[in-house]
Computed example of a mutant assay.
Amino acid sequence: PHPTFAWADRPAPEGVRPPTEHPDSAYPPGTVTETHGQAEAFVSTLAQRMTRGAAFFLDYGFPEHEYHLPQRHGGTLMCHHAHTADADPLAMVGDKDITAHVNFTGIALAGQDAGWEVLGYCSQGRFLSNCGLGEALARTGQASNAADIQSRVALQMLVAEHEMGELFKVIGFVKGPWFEAIGFAHGDRTHTL
């Protein structure tokens, strides 16, 4: 038995609005999108508390100009349960994971506003390749048993563009001395934030 769950639409808190390219533009009626106040507050708090070092965040998402494209008029919210996906967070409440894509532009701005510098931003596949994953896979040679094959397939999923390699992104921040992070050596997309 699940507890009773009540749902009601409510206006967004004052000052919380999704960005628009032009201040006078509006979203078409029925548009749904997510805002990321808690994620941005987390990054801001972490940046304020860190005195020196680097932080790297990996998740699926987009820079703001891709996040709010017209084809995402329904938002990015997705639910997962028992290897199936749906977009109804009000079905099976408490029994499934609910997630949404990250707006990496908002994360970058929150970090910068709190004192971090952006080291780089790129796809997970590019980041892992820059860090030497491809060479590590090559050194393992031909897979010889089922466990080796399964490991190689899992590693390939992390870098393949049609799998997690492009969907997931990495953003890195630094506070203190700047350094060239090897993970962003090729394919850095910071300019898209």
Rank of each mutant, 00 (worst) to 15 (best):
R49E: 14
E161F: 05
M164F: 12
G94S: 08
L90S: 09
I98S: 03
H101L: 09
N130V: 00
E66P: 01
G61P: 03
F5G: 04
H36C: 05
S123W: 08
S144N: 07
R126G: 00
G94L: 06
S25G: 06
D95P: 00
A85I: 03
L58P: 03
R72C: 11
F104C: 06
E180C: 06
I182K: 12
L133Y: 06
G125R: 04
G106F: 04
A8K: 13
A185S: 15
Y27I: 02
Q48N: 12
A185P: 03
E163G: 05
L77E: 03
F62G: 01
I171W: 01
G30P: 07
A26T: 14
Q48R: 15
V93T: 08
A181Q: 07
I149C: 07
R189C: 12
L109R: 15
R72M: 01
H36A: 04
A136P: 02
H73L: 10
P1W: 13
Q156Y: 10
Q142N: 09
F179P: 00
S44Q: 10
A91K: 11
V93A: 10
P23A: 10
P19V: 11
R17Q: 12
A6K: 09
G75P: 02
N103V: 05
H65W: 10
L167C: 08
E40C: 11
G120D: 11
F57D: 02
E163M: 14
M157A: 13
T33C: 15
D9R: 02
D24K: 10
H101T: 11
G30C: 02
T105C: 05
H186C: 08
A181D: 09
P1N: 11
D148H: 13
F173S: 07
H2R: 12
P29G: 00
Q48A: 12
G106Q: 07
E40M: 14
M78L: 15
N145A: 04
K175P: 00
